[in-house]
Design a protein around this nucleic acid. Structure first.
Lengths: 248, 248
DNA sequence: GAACGTACTGTCAGATATTACAGGTACAGC
DNA sequence: GCTGTACCTGTAATATCTGACAGTACGTTC
């Protein structure tokens, strides 16, 4: 990994064809910017109750296992922040003071694995993916803040390209679920369904029979593999199949 | 505007309290990186059929008016790309060759207003917002490519902070719609509704009466101001009120 | 103590969705 | 000419949702 120029790492991501390769590239960027650890995680909304997770971990194995076993994702303040925001979050051991007890305990345990400070970059996609990349180090105080500030501009860009690469590499896998293609009429009927229109109302809007609207929505349910209209609507919206219009 | 350091512009965005101020900051960054024009646009999904749009324009007024009058958003290749992707898009007059006729005409008309090349940064949020920032110039060839490459890292970060600032500045306005808060039970019932469960099925899962599930979902409909369950589901998902879980 | 929010439950009529059956036209590619 | 796809329509039984009626219980705030 020799990437003095920012764009070389970006190109490397664009060409990567395996998870191992992505891991190597991340490790390189991590090290070059003065961090010791990195971790990338993505949540793909195949289902709301049980989404699909992808991780590329440069964290200590023991910490990862402990983290998973305790379901720390629901506590981890960086995950909570990144799930809601689009700008990076810098964090350090100041978070040991203040905040809820479980968060203090979490941060304290991370510290035992040499993770004192870092920065996390969130990514959200129109397909409903949520991903984040964290760089971490054992540094504290001004020393850590300097590293964080330096990595900010590249980090945000890098995370976007990284997630794009992950989706490409995992193409054959679960990610393909969001590639259902609906016909024009199916999309139209679904769009009006998301607007709360009944089949009859939609039939008036599209000037077709109520039965035809039902027919199209049935086909949508089949294609999306769902049980009823509300689930079809939920999945279509979360997968970005139905987007807000650009008209007016 | 004196922002040799990247982070100064970021801080400036974080403190900005008016659209005019945001306009000034954008214009500064634009100029410093060798571009002549910029435009920021955001789509807030208040409704799927008629979402809310926000623009901060540093484009020629005549071009903007022409663009709006012809509803060019549905043609503009940068908008189409950014709506689907998370990485920046560089564009230049090469797009005059190839592609659909209406796109060639569009690019050709933009050229008449001194817009030959540029770069567009997309942003998607967990609340379903879609925003993009474009920097444009009259330059062509290698000269334009150099400017674009230089602005890439900061641009992605800047766009994220810009959109965050826009949401803050517009807080009192339409943006506040996504701040409906539902009770725990309401969220639970809604979550299972997005999974295609009927009221009876949800009642079995939560160990309550079917009638109670209906009751909660009715309250959700009231709070979200919608007519039926599928619209409630669509809005809750698109506003990020119901997110995929982190369990397991 | 009253007012309020949250959670919970019941009945019942009418509207809407789901699922089964059945059938049709138009167009593109082989 | 055959095959496949998109698009369209109808009837009918059953399941589910919607909306309006009417309540109880518990905890917090004023």
């Amino acid at each position: 990994m020799d990437a003095t120029n920012s764009l070389e790492v970006i190109d490397a991501l664009a060409e990567a064809e395996s998870v191992d390769r992505l891991h190597t590239i991340c490790a390189g960027v991590c090290q070059e910017h003065g961090f010791e650890r990195f971790i990338y995680g993505a949540r793909i909304p195949t289902s709301f109750v049980k989404p699909y997770f992808i991780f590329i971990s440069g964290y200590p194995r023991e910490w990862r296992e402990h983290y998973t076993a305790n379901n720390y994702m629901v506590i981890d303040p960086t995950v909570q922040y990144c799930a809601q925001n689009i700008t990076p979050m810098a964090w350090d051991d100041d978070m040991l003071t203040g905040g809820r007890a479980e968060i203090r305990r979490f941060m304290s345990e991370a510290r035992d694995f040499g993770i004192n400070s870092g920065v996390s970059f969130p990514i959200h996609t129109s397909q409903g993916d949520f991903a984040m990349l964290s760089f971490a180090s054992g540094k504290t105080g001004p020393q850590s803040r300097t590293c964080i500030q330096r990595v900010l501009p590249l980090g945000q860009l890098f995370t976007a390209y990284l997630h794009e690469a992950v989706r490409r590499v995992f193409d054959a896998d679960v990610v393909a679920l969001s590639k259902v293609d609906l016909t024009q009429r199916e999309k139209e009927c679904l769009l009006w369904a998301t607007e709360g229109k009944t089949a009859w109302e939609t039939s008036q809007i599209l000037s077709i029979a109520e039965r035809t609207v039902t027919f199209h929505l049935q086909n949508v349910q089949g294609k999306l593999g769902v049980n009823n209209r509300q689930q079809a609507v939920a999945r279509a919206v979360s997968l970005g199949i139905i987007e807000p219009q650009f008209n007016q």
